[in-house]
Design a protein around this nucleic acid. Structure first.
Lengths: 110, 110, 110, 110
DNA sequence: TTTT
DNA sequence: TTTT
């Protein structure tokens, strides 16, 4: 099937580094993506979209990205299902990054 | 910002029709999108992605689509936050459809 | 940089098979993609877009696709420059396919 | 049908302003989009892609963009056919912009 | 004809 | 919980 996502937005915080049991690097990021249009209250809403990157891409993100950075992400939308602590079935959506482009320069001393 | 999603998959059930308080038609659909690759158990996983369509697009989907139909959807990824019945903050992800293309013919008497 | 193209359309003819000097299979196809809107004469125009596929993807296209088939193509837009027989610099645009999905069933005996 | 193009690249020159006979503004731009991979000579090739924008979007591009600016473009791939001065049928490819995002800050005094 |  |  086809499943393609393309986003441009800003990181809400530094990438969070994780390791899988077998040692693969995972980076978790949240991207703030402003909507084009304002809502009925005249406010511009923002989608906060979870991004996950794996291995070398994850390492590059962790090394070079930080809070506030503007990036483009190409990836696919993944829906995970899991049971929470109360045993209720929950769903989590995240974009699995296949390509991340750093669009502004890192700020010095920031 | 940019926020584009492109999906091809099959409807898991008939579109569900809703109305907003001011009378706009909304269609809710779930799209089953198979992943390209099999997991470590050799199984092909599927993402079940919530789709929402508005007004005339919603009406067309309700009128012409049904369970099992193959469609392509172009839209944007939207993350809604809400408080559940226990007052816990939850997130829901859905693709707001901007264009839906019907890719196979409707089955007769089905 | 980023360079992504998504198309859905029909093949105007059977894929054309070529071989590179070192034996790689290449498939050339033309995709007819109708525009959404009609022009000022009330006619729906069509873009005829050149598609090129390589190696295993090319072989699959050659084996399974034919004139009139509905396909989706994900790829990148490539602009080649060359000098024609009169020595004039010319440009050719083509989409290099990365993924091709066959959207309708092959017709029997056709 | 579906026809979506997403590009990130740099303008090779300032946007060129045109007017249609009935007074609509048109902007023509060329986007340099580097490929991800190097060719067999170890060089990184670049696709020079023609972009066309209409009316208000054209005016914004003309007003705010210039040579060297980094932009993202969302649009559709259009193939125009025309007869050249020798009466030979030619094809021209261009991306009709639907959305253009300015990704770096304009340089002062440049 | 090409951008960084 | 959120970025500019």
């Amino acid at each position: 099937m086809m499943n393609e996502v393309w986003l441009i937005g800003r990181l809400t915080k530094d990438p969070e580094e994780k390791k899988t049991p077998n040692g693969k690097t995972v980076a978790r990021m949240t991207l703030a993506v402003d909507r084009d249009y304002t809502n009925t209250d005249g406010e511009r809403e923002t989608d906060f979209i979870e991004i996950i990157a794996w291995e070398k891409l994850a390492e590059n993100c962790i090394k070079h990205l930080g809070k506030g950075r503007l990036v483009s992400v190409k990836g696919r939308l993944q829906i995970r299902t899991y049971d929470d602590s109360q045993g209720t079935r929950r769903k989590a959506a995240e974009v699995v990054a296949e390509k991340v482009k750093f669009l502004d320069k890192a700020k010095e001393n920031a």
